[in-house]
Design a protein around this nucleic acid. Structure first.
Lengths: 127, 127
DNA sequence: CCGTATCCCAGCTGATACTG
DNA sequence: CAGTATCAGCTGGGATACGG
């Protein structure tokens, strides 16, 4: 992965179908990453996701998993039982997204102090 | 970078000060990544960014660079000249973010076809 | 249990006009 | 040139109620 260097090109980001824009539109929302990370650990049923993600509404969880399913990142399995049971898990495609997300996470962990310091300093000067 | 593995932990994502959430809140908006990538190539003045980023309003460009500056990712240099000139460039912190963004970009480039295919297939079934 | 349907509001964003 | 100020529209997302 580190052998070839794939720089972000100017032409890419200006284009409206810029790949980075696409992925950010997909996971840059409020809940998608949380769902992906949870499903990266193991399969979850709907109610498990609902309980695990603090503050999400049933509506938004539905919309989020539906969008992820539409994009082929998550698969949905309905078990014909009483009471009904629906399992969600990552597809191979979804699992492949975990690596770049972890890279972002690693950056955040490493630099969150720097950001906080810069912000504190900025706010101190600006009042 | 690939030596140590930094998995995204469940405890992280549920916490409201989850590092990944933080960074997504920062660059997950409509314009921040575009500005960062452009400044990753070279210093830009305000009007250059404005022209380079198709569709951004003056107001949103101002808000975006201000937020990035506040977080220490971008530095702003005012030249006392007539007409006035303001240069924006990445800080070291901002430059360090380019790598994970490129990882995300690489993923997007590699898998955009898969996503499109999944979406087409899904829409075909759903009508 | 797993959703869908409806209503509604906050805030993000663009458009426009104005200023140092 | 590089912003700031103000207004208005749209959309994301929560609350609630209902259905399979």
């Amino acid at each position: 992965m580190s052998a070839r260097h794939t720089p972000v090109r100017l032409a890419d980001v200006q284009d409206e179908d810029c790949p980075t824009r696409e992925v950010l539109d997909r996971v840059g929302d409020k809940w998608s990453v949380l769902v992906i990370v949870l499903l990266g650990e193991r399969t979850h049923r709907f109610s498990e996701l609902h309980r695990a993600i603090d503050g999400i509404s049933q509506r938004m969880l539905t919309l989020t998993v539906r969008a992820l399913e539409r994009d082929g990142l998550v698969s949905r399995t309905v078990h014909a039982s009483v009471p009904p049971r629906v399992d969600y898990r990552l597809t191979d495609l979804g699992r492949s997204l975990l690596a770049p997300l972890e890279a972002l996470n690693a950056w955040a962990v490493e630099h969150r102090g720097d950001i906080q310091a810069a912000r504190d300093e900025h706010d101190r000067r600006s009042g």
